[in-house]
Every structure is written in structure tokens, then in C-alpha cells.
């Protein structure tokens, strides 16, 4: 399937369908999700209206990890089969993932103020997400520092794959680290305490975020392909003009 769409024309056809589909799904799901989150769901019996921050925060945190998984998957496909489209996908996913990670950090911090009384709490989850953000930054920095496109593709694919192993160990070690000192009692915003009335907006928002990410990825992939073609045409014109 991947090698089928590795062909630029076929990819273009796919993108022509995928972009409006993802776009429409994003608008519908995010619209419904936002309405449910802010108006049609009851306030939490403990957190009150603050709980509504959860509906923008938790899906962002989920997208941060999901997009990293997609980045690593695309890198693996490129590394093994050398499909240029997989490398392009990785290049496009990284900044989108970084933005979702930054969103997760920012909303987490805004949520932390009413919940913990501080803008930032060094708890295991927040710290892991912060490390994930650094991983995204390192990936993008390496990619932009290497000028040869092939070298950039290979080196960053290796880094993205190594990042998976790293992030798993980081998650474990950060949990161990935060268990060394027990913080004061903290609301557990997740886990079994979630009420079914909160599940709907959360699910809708998570799906909406996913569609948004898909939309952005396809949109940027197509833009990238068009920019490439424009470059090539430009060069052709220049060399033709010289003759």
C-alpha cells in the first residue's frame, strides 16, 4: 500500500481526497467537541469548571505521543524501504507534533494552577512531556542542520527511531524519580474517576484533534510536493534560458 502511494501522482490523487475529508471531519468533530466540552457537559463535582481544561489538554497530550509514534513509524519505513514519501511524512509530522506537545504543556500548566496551586509541577507526566518536547526540538534541529537531503533523511530517521527506545526508558525512569518524593495529595484527573458525562466531550475532542493532525499532515505534504515541483520547474527554466 505504501509503495503504491510512493508514486507522486498517486499520492497527489490521495491527497486531493484526503485533505477535504480530514478538513470536514475536523470541523465537525472539533465543533461538536468544543460545544460538548464548554456548554453541554456538567462541571466536575470536585474541580468545577476547571475540568473543562482537561478537554483541550488530554487530547493534546495524546496527540503529542501519537504523532511521535507516527514520526518514528514513518522513519522506520524510510530507513528500511527508502520510500521518499515516508521521509517527507516524517519531516512534516515533526513540527506538528512539536506544536501539539507545546499545547499539551501550556494547557497542562494552565490546568495546574487551579489544581496544584502552581503553574508548573514536576510530576512524572508533565516532565515526560517536556522531555518529549526536547526530543522533537532535537529532531527538527538535526534535520535543518544537515544540508544534503539524503543525509538529513537518514540521520533524522535514525534519531527518531532511537527516540522511541529513549522515551520508553524516560517514562519509566521519570516515574521512578517522582516516586522518590511523594508530592502533596493531588487530584487524579484521569483513571477511574472520569465520569461518563466527561467521556463524550473527551472522546470527540480526541477524534477532532486526530483529524486535525491528519489534515495538517496531508496539507503540508501536498504543499511540500508542490514546492518541490515549482523548484524543479524553476531550475528547468533557468537552464533552458542559458541554452
Amino acid at each position: 500500500m505504501l509503495s503504491y502511494f510512493a508514486n507522486p501522482q498517486r499520492f497527489d490523487q490521495l491527497a486531493r481526497i484526503a485533505i477535504p475529508v480530514f478538513g470536514a471531519a475536523t470541523l465537525i468533530l472539533l465543533g461538536a467537541g468544543i460545544y460538548m466540552s464548554f456548554f453541554a457537559s456538567p462541571p466536575d463535582y470536585q474541580q468545577g469548571d476547571t475540568v473543562r481544561i482537561m478537554y483541550v489538554h488530554v487530547p493534546a497530550a495524546y496527540m503529542a505521543s501519537a504523532l511521535y509514534a507516527a514520526l518514528a513509524g514513518a522513519s522506520f519505513v524510510y530507513f528500511v524501504w527508502r520510500h521518499a514519501i515516508a521521509d517527507a511524512a516524517a519531516a512534516v509530522i515533526a513540527p506538528i507534533g512539536a506544536v501539539f506537545t507545546a499545547l499539551a504543556l501550556a494547557t497542562g500548566s494552565i490546568w495546574g494552577k487551579p489544581m496544584w496551586g502552581t503553574w508548573w509541577e514536576w510530576d512524572a507526566r508533565m516532565t515526560s512531556v517536556l522531555v518529549l518536547f526536547l526530543v522533537y526540538l532535537g529532531y527538527m534541529a538535526l534535520r535543518s542542520a544537515l544540508e544534503d537531503a539524503q543525509q538529513a533523511a537518514r540521520a533524522s530517521a535514525i534519531l527518531a527511531m532511537a527516540g522511541v527506545i529513549n522515551l520508553v526508558i524516560v517514562k519509566f525512569s521519570v516515574e521512578w524519580w517522582s516516586s522518590l518524593h511523594q508530592p502533596a495529595a493531588v487530584f487524579r484527573a484521569d483513571g477511574p474517576t472520569i465520569h461518563s458525562s466527561q467521556l463524550w466531550p473527551l472522546g470527540l475532542m480526541a477524534l477532532g484533534y486526530t483529524m486535525l493532525a491528519g489534515w495538517l499532515v496531508f496539507y503540508r505534504l501536498r504543499t511540500r510536493a508542490i514546492a518541490r515541483r515549482a523548484d524543479a520547474l524553476m531550475r528547468q527554466k533557468e537552464s533552458g534560458g542559458r541554452k
Binding site: 522531555v131 526536547l134 526530543v135 532535537g138 534541529a141 534519531l159 524516560v170
Partner: peptide, 12 residues
């Protein structure tokens, strides 16, 4: 760049 790549890996 090396520091930026290496630090997340050195966390554990």
C-alpha cells in the same frame, strides 16, 4: 546541536 540531541537521552 549535539547537546540538544543528547540531553533527552541522558535523562534516565
Amino acid at each position: 546541536l549535539i547537546a540538544l540531541i543528547a540531553t533527552p537521552m541522558m535523562v534516565p
